[in-house]
């Protein structure tokens, strides 16, 4: 895979990124390349810095040093909405929807910027055909059409997780980052969610943090292993499975 990892085809490039909170270095010398169009999983023990890595890439927090590139442009230091407008979208580990708004409105809000509505206060939001069609399409994709008028806060947990994915992909971003999308789901719900993710990220670049190893090895084209804020290995599922460092640091523990 390493021959594919060149500047031209990288969707995300993280170079020598460091993040300190006070004196504590959470992320140290982080290097990560995600190739355009691949499904890339980040795994690692609890507290390794997986969510922090997500937050650094999506602009939620700023790196202390180093740089992050999206499609070749430096994005570290930009605000989250600026990064989102450049085509990177992320979901959250803890469900993070608009609780008092209906399922329909949740998804529609996520469609608005991408369809060029910006801060318009002179248009009726109900009479924008493009917005309506895209919202309906996303709802159909995440199988929540029958729940469209239910406030998001009243959905079941699994439904909220699906809505979370729906909001994430609604903007049409080419790089999608999902933070533990199947956490807390039953086996049947996990299978459904994985099928959904596979279908909805077709042709896009996917970065996923996941604890469920069967999901990771079933879904990912490549895997990066993060331990103590540092990537210790990157490669295909086969390479990762055989890597002695990974075995020692992570898989050998059989903690997950």
């Amino acid at each position: 895979m390493s021959e594919a990892v060149t500047g031209m085809t990288a969707a995300i490039e993280v170079r020598a990124v460091e993040k300190r909170f006070g004196n504590v270095g959470i992320i140290r010398d982080l290097n990560l390349t995600v190739v355009k169009g691949e499904r890339h999983a980040i795994i690692g023990p609890n507290g390794a810095g997986k969510s922090t890595t997500f937050n650094l890439i999506s602009g939620h927090i700023k790196p202390t040093s180093g740089e992050v590139k999206l499609n070749g442009d430096v994005i570290s230091g930009l605000r989250p909405f600026e990064i989102n407008r450049r085509g990177l979208s992320r979901s959250f580990q803890v469900t993070n929807v608009f609780a008092r708004m209906t399922v329909w409105e949740n998804v529609r809000c996520a469609v608005l910027w991408a369809t060029g509505q910006r801060y318009a206060f002179w248009k009726n939001v109900d009479s924008l055909p493009e917005v309506r069609e895209r919202t309906a399409q996303i709802l159909d994709d995440i199988h929540l059409t029958h729940r469209r008028d239910v406030p998001a806060g009243l959905l079941t947990y699994a439904e909220q997780r699906e809505l979370e994915i729906g909001i994430t992909i609604a903007s049409g971003a080419t790089v999608v980052m999902l933070d533990e999308p199947t956490a807390g789901m039953s086996h049947a719900e996990t299978d459904r969610a994985v099928a959904l993710i596979r279908r909805l990220t077709e042709g896009k670049t996917l970065v996923i943090v996941e604890h469920d190893m069967s999901v990771v090895f079933g879904l990912a084209d490549r895997i990066s292993v993060l331990v103590y804020g540092h990537i210790i290995a990157s490669g295909t599922p086969e390479e990762i499975r055989r890597d002695p460092k990974v075995k020692e640091a992570y898989l050998g523990e059989e903690a997950h």
Partner: peptide
Amino acid sequence: RICNAVRDNPERVQFIGY
């Protein structure tokens, strides 16, 4: 509508472009 979204969850609004 985006005002409602900001009311419910200003953090998430940033990740849908606003």
